[in-house]
Design a protein around this nucleic acid. Structure first.
Lengths: 157, 157
DNA sequence: GCGTACGAGTTGACACGTCAACTTTCGCTG
DNA sequence: CAGCGAAAGTTGACGTGTCAACTCGTACGC
């Protein structure tokens, strides 16, 4: 393994700028969502997932797979959102186990409320300033990164 | 404000891929750092900052400015790192207030230990797979994003 | 000198995310 | 059918990050 080690100053700078930009953007988007719709990015993601899959209910594992989140992360998030009244864990399995996640009315309202505004925020802060070449580069980089880091563990994709 | 709202499926997909890729990369890097050197990204950042500024000690505000972190975040991080024995808050101010953050021997050791490995990880997972065009695009995007989101609030840069 | 306002730093509460340990359920095999 | 092992889900502990409230010291005006 010929790991070259040491990075040049330019590289450290690029790395720093990149991570800084990511953080700023993520924060801007989260703040806007919180301000406009009173929910967080994480909540939005879960709400959207349940919203799209209008089979009415999903299981934890399905949400996790769809968002590519950890099972445990989903469970914790659902606990918080259940407390907020956005979702319910209903009986759906055979016996007594509570599987089956459903949106409450409040949850449905929250997604509807948030969708347009959030899409607008993304457009304004992410898509609009993106030149076509940048978009292409980012797409290529994202796909490559995903393939590289996730491919080995998940050959299905 | 003509906020266009709704994004097309391609856009949602790009957004999803991008955030997913980011998360995977960040996690990979953090895991590697943890495994190889026993410290986290956050710890590494603070250690590096103190390491570079070998005036021997920095103040919370200086670390915050250098990393572009929140003051409070730095303080919490320092509390954790003080507990781990990496830094000390020494008396440096005039009277009794503890300002002045210093690396302990252990802290110095940890940076030295981590530096090469971390640089190697970044090269392997970030720089190596990056084509020149992608690097250029990412640099441009990062700088633009920072200017757009931070510029208005901080005209100094 | 006295008070007051400001800046620096800390702290507590809380949301988020990861890991490891645990429980429960279900499928499979004998 | 009994048992066993994998899959699904939950939970607790902890590190991380943000926000708001607080403490303290210092500088300034009187």
């Amino acid at each position: 393994m010929t790991q070259t080690g040491d990075l040049g100053p330019e590289e450290w700078e690029l790395w720093g700028a990149w991570t800084h930009a990511q953080r700023l953007l993520a924060q801007e988007i989260d703040t806007a969502l919180q301000r406009d719709s009173g929910i967080s990015k994480a909540e939005f993601s879960v709400l959207m997932t349940l919203w799209r899959a209008d089979a009415g209910e999903l299981r934890v594992g399905e949400i996790a797979a769809s968002l590519r989140w950890d099972k445990s992360r989903v469970s914790h998030q659902l606990t918080r959102m259940e407390k907020r009244g956005f979702v319910t864990r209903s009986e759906s399995g055979a016996h007594g186990r509570r599987t089956g996640i459903t949106l409450t009315e409040e949850g449905r309202g929250a997604v509807r409320e948030a969708l347009t505004g959030h899409a607008g925020t993304l457009r304004r802060h992410f898509f609009a300033p993106l030149t076509p070449e940048q978009a292409a580069a980012i797409r290529a980089w994202s796909e490559g990164t995903i393939a590289r880091l996730e491919g080995p563990g998940d050959t299905s994709a």
